[in-house]
Simulated scan of single mutants.
Amino acid sequence: MFNSWLRKGSIILTAFILLFSLAACGTESEEQPANQGSNEGNELSGEINIDGSSTVFPVSQAVAEEFMAIHDDVMVTVNLSGSSNGFKALIAGEIQIADASRQIKDKEVDALKAEGQEAVEMPVAFDGITVVINPENDWATEMTVDELKKIWEVGSTVENWSDVNPEWPNEPIKLYGPGTASGTFEYFTGAINGTKNESREDYTPSEDDNVLVTGVSGDKYAMGYFGFSYYVENQDKLNAVSIKVDESAAAVAPTVETIKDGTYKPLSRPIYIYPVKSALEKKEIQEFLKYYMSEEGQALAEEVGYVALPAEMYAENLSLLP
Results as ranks from 00 to 15, higher is better:
Gly183His: 08
Glu302Leu: 12
Lys150Cys: 10
Ala89Thr: 11
Ala114Leu: 11
Ser268Glu: 06
Lys149Cys: 08
Thr27Ile: 15
Gln103Asp: 12
Phe288Glu: 00
Ala111Lys: 09
Asp208Phe: 04
Ser278Gln: 12
Ile95Lys: 00
Lys290Arg: 11
Phe126Arg: 03
Lys149Asn: 13
Ala240Gly: 11
Val256Leu: 12
Tyr272Trp: 13
Leu80Asp: 04
Pro254Phe: 00
Glu159Asp: 11
Val59Thr: 05
Arg200Cys: 02
Asp246Tyr: 09
Leu19Gln: 07
Thr141Asn: 13
Gly190His: 03
Glu281Pro: 05
Ile192Phe: 04
Glu233Cys: 04
Ile17Cys: 07
Val304Lys: 01
Asp127Phe: 03
Leu148Phe: 09
Asp246Gly: 03
Val307Glu: 01
Asn160Ser: 02
Val158Leu: 01
Asp73Arg: 14
Phe67Gln: 01
Val241Ala: 04
Pro169Asp: 09
Tyr272Gly: 03
Asp106Arg: 14
Gly262Gln: 10
Gly177Leu: 05
Val213His: 08
Gly82Cys: 09
Asn42Glu: 14
Glu136Phe: 02
Asn170Gly: 14
Lys277Asp: 03
Asp246Phe: 06
Gly305Arg: 08
Lys282Asp: 11
Ile11Phe: 03
Leu300Gln: 01
Thr214Phe: 15
Pro33Ser: 09
Lys265Glu: 13
Ser60Thr: 12
Tyr291Trp: 08
Glu287Asn: 03
Asn165Arg: 06
Pro169Trp: 05
Lys237Gln: 12
Phe188Asn: 05
Gly262Arg: 15
Ala308Ser: 13
Leu18Asn: 13
Phe20Ile: 12
Lys265Arg: 15
Lys105Pro: 08
Asn165Thr: 02
Gly262Lys: 15
Ser242Lys: 07
Glu171Gln: 09
Leu321Lys: 03
Ala114His: 04
Ser101Thr: 00
Asn193Arg: 06
Ser268Asn: 13
Glu287Cys: 00
Pro135Ala: 12
Leu280Pro: 04
Leu80Asn: 01
Asn3Met: 06
Thr214Pro: 13
Val256Trp: 02
Val63Thr: 09
Glu296Arg: 11
Tyr264Glu: 01
Thr27Val: 09
Pro166Asp: 14
